[in-house]
Simulated assay, not measured.
Amino acid sequence: MCGGLAPIADIPKTVVYEICQYVNRDREIISHNTLIKPPPAELRPNQKDQDSLPPYDILDAVLSMYIDEGLSIDEMVDRGYDVVF
């Protein structure tokens, strides 16, 4: 990656995909195949992030509640999230 991740390191993946859609609003700059391919976990061949993680919309919400809002597990559960994935 050679530092390529740094500018977007703290942006949730769902927002990264929204940014990609914005970039492609007038013409395809980021390949459509890149945007529809499941992100690899990059731990072992053919492993996908969602093999061991929840869908990104749920994961991003839980991370935001934990990091941005400082909520406890009980508070997240009270909001309807099953944080024991």
Rank of each mutant, 00 (worst) to 15 (best):
N24R: 01
V84I: 14
C2K: 11
F85R: 12
E69M: 04
S64I: 04
R25Q: 15
V23F: 06
L43A: 12
L53F: 07
I8F: 10
M65N: 08
Y56A: 06
P40S: 15
R27K: 14
P38F: 01
A61F: 00
Y56L: 04
L63P: 00
S52Y: 07
I29D: 04
T14Y: 05
C20M: 15
E18R: 15
D68C: 05
A61P: 02
D74K: 14
D78G: 04
R44P: 02
I11G: 07
S64T: 12
D60T: 08
H32V: 09
S52W: 03
P7G: 03
G80H: 04
Q47S: 15
A9C: 11
V83G: 00
K37I: 09
M76I: 05
I8E: 03
L5V: 11
P39R: 07
D82T: 06
I8P: 03
P12W: 01
P45I: 05
E75N: 00
L59Q: 08
D68F: 01
D78N: 10
R79C: 04
K48C: 06
I29N: 08
G3S: 10
I30N: 08
T34Q: 13
I29M: 06
D68G: 07
T34V: 11
Y81M: 01
N46D: 13
R79V: 02
A6P: 02
I19W: 09
V83E: 00
L59N: 03
P12Y: 00
R27T: 07
S72L: 03
P38N: 04
T14H: 08
M65K: 07
E75G: 03
L5Y: 11
L63A: 03
D60K: 05
D74V: 05
D10W: 08
P54N: 03
I8R: 08
P55Q: 03
K13T: 09
R79G: 06
P38K: 10
N24K: 02
I30Y: 05
R44V: 12
G70F: 00
V15M: 10
V15C: 08
D49N: 15
G70L: 02
G80P: 02
D57S: 12
K13Q: 12
